[in-house]
Design a binder for these strands. Structure first.
Lengths: 353, 353
DNA sequence: CTGAAAGCGCTTACAG
DNA sequence: CTGAAAGCGCTTACAG
């Protein structure tokens, strides 16, 4: 099962010139005669020559590959971010290596080591919810491997970060519910080890406070981002003597679970309970009533993260300061929170996929 | 920005022995003295030595990496298959390189070349719906690069394939609708350039024929796998003078689009129209009424594909015959097709994510 | 049991 | 303008 790939040596022999000359001609060096250059290029094309990337890596101490560590690529949020990363990476000639932590600390550590042993030029990371200790990243950073965090960052590590304004987004979502007339607003939070969850919860609380509304502990349920949590939390909230008249879920997945539970329990949205999510899944617009949410710029987040990382890789100088970019989520009002609106509108057709 | 990674040379100098000895000790060669071996291993561990994979690749003409070409990783079907692939690959010491064709022929071709120039040891492919010509894969195969196709295969290329029994699954889905009492069953098909779409359509037709039901052209709408297609098709079907009393969609995404449209139009499922999908998306169980579907063994498909590929890579002998594995999808009956059933059941909690 | 040498595919000072 | 040589990090016959 031998692969026949042409090498510079073979091209040289066939042309009766030296390897050095072939190599220089291929790289369009100015010190090679035009005629020689033409002959080399022609043969290289005919033979489908492509340089062996491993030989180059060995020489340059560069691999032209970057690693990406995310909880889960089947999560649409991450697969869209990865789309943005690949967009930039391929354009600039880099290969992308993806590793999933499945939100488990040990997997994140072993994935990080594995990817590092593959000598990637840099790393793009969104940490696992189970990660509380960050030496595996710190080690790399200290070894001079550039890291950029996106969405879920390690606050204590100094490097570029690309985040979403979770606090502001949650504030805006809650404010929207208030303006629609809701007064007893509950929140279903994600895993509190993650800053994104804490920030969203804080934005929610501060909006309530700003409008002089009650912040009740029993109206704040904490779990993680799965839809099962949303359903359980909805049961729990609606069983309270003091029922909420709105629920702001920290993610669309949570919200969709809550949505199903609320329907089952016989509540009308938004008349009985208004509902909002965070993230905008493809199907959030297709459920009945369609789910209001905060749209996150996922693809753009991937693009910007990759750009920052590649810039870091390609500048020789050490970095003096690091940038934290905060992208704005956008309010997307649909029927689940439009009080007094009627839900039947042609929907689901102008929605992005 | 120089990376400091220890090399064998440095270890050798520090220990005052030769590179050869270090190398052999590291590989646990039997010709090295126990004491020397211990000293080498200890230092290697202390210095966090990891062999440079590029040097090894150069030597072995092996990269221990495989390429995966899929239409779109944000499609849950593919991200789950990729999960299975990575499971096997990492376990057997291989790196996975993913490339998305976005269902565009040109992208698939350039992705294939790109991945090939990275010298992967083998390729796992699910072709783009826009691909009608397959020389880019044939070239690789002829160069001795093993390829395994999954789900969407190129029929004319002789190699291992892992498929789903789309014909049988569609037959079973249609039969289920018939047994529930439906008599005017429509089908919304995927892109007909894909065998999976044609096979599903054929299974649908043959089931109708077997039960002596009418196969009407106007009840078969063809598009692609997007939910927009499902919605448009539902409008079209329900506008017919002869309305169907059931719709079998070739994918859950199509079905979810149809589901939203049917609700909007005021139809009750399954009383007015029964609905079935194919694939089982995470959210198919969370819509109201929950969607019946054929569950595909996606993770298992990824696992088996990767195993076949790695076996091919690791056996030296040329392959004499190739295997086509056909995995069975499983009927998952939910409320959208359970005629006479009442939908309210605790749902969405025992569902896989 | 250990070392010197050649070579995987490539680039680049150094000569000419 | 072109070639011979060294070297990136590693392994492995070939000597001893």
């Amino acid at each position: 099962m031998t692969r026949q790939t042409v090498t510079i040596k073979e091209l040289a022999k066939e042309l009766g010139i030296s390897k050095s000359t072939v190599s220089r001609a291929l790289r369009d060096s100015s010190e090679i005669g035009a005629e020689t250059k033409a002959r080399v290029l022609e043969l290289a094309r005919a033979r489908h020559y492509t340089p062996n990337p491993f030989a180059l890596s060995l020489l340059n101490h560069r691999t032209y590959s970057i690693g990406v560590i995310v909880p889960d690529i089947s999560n649409p949020f991450f697969s869209s971010v990865i789309g943005g990363i690949e967009d930039v990476a391929y354009q600039r000639g880099y290969q992308v290596m993806i590793f999933q932590s499945h939100d488990v600390y040990e997997r994140e550590v072993s994935g990080t080591r594995h990817i590092a042993s593959r000598r990637v030029d840099g790393l793009l990371v969104s940490i696992a919810s189970g990660t509380l200790e960050h030496n595996h990243f710190r080690e790399l950073a200290e070894n001079g491997i550039p890291i950029v965090f996106f969405d879920r960052a390690v606050e204590e590590i100094q490097t570029h970060k690309v985040l979403v304004d979770d606090y502001g987004g949650a504030f805006q979502a809650t404010e929207h519910l208030i303006r629609e007339g809701c007064r007893r607003i509950a929140h279903i939070a994600g895993h509190l080890s993650l800053a994104i969850s804490r920030n969203r919860a804080q934005g929610y609380k501060d909006a309530l406070i700003k409008y002089g509304l009650e912040v009740r502990d029993e109206w704040i349920v904490t779990g993680d981002f799965r839809h099962e949590v949303g359903a359980d939390a909805a049961y729990q909230l609606m069983a309270l003597k003091q029922r909420p008249d709105a629920i702001f879920a920290a993610s669309d997945r949570i919200a969709i679970g809550a949505h199903a539970a609320l329907r089952q329990l016989g509540y009308k949205m938004p008349a009985d309970v208004a509902l909002m999510g965070f993230s905008d899944l493809a199907f959030s617009s297709l459920i009945d009533p369609p789910l209001s949410t905060m749209v996150q710029p996922t693809f753009e987040m991937g693009r910007q993260s990759a750009e920052l990382l590649l810039d870091m890789i390609e500048t020789k100088k050490p970095h003096m300061f690091y940038e934290t970019r905060v992208l704005k989520p956008e309010l997307m009002v649909r029927e689940s929170s439009r009080k007094g609106g009627k839900w039947i509108e042609p929907t689901g057709f102008e929605i992005q996929d």
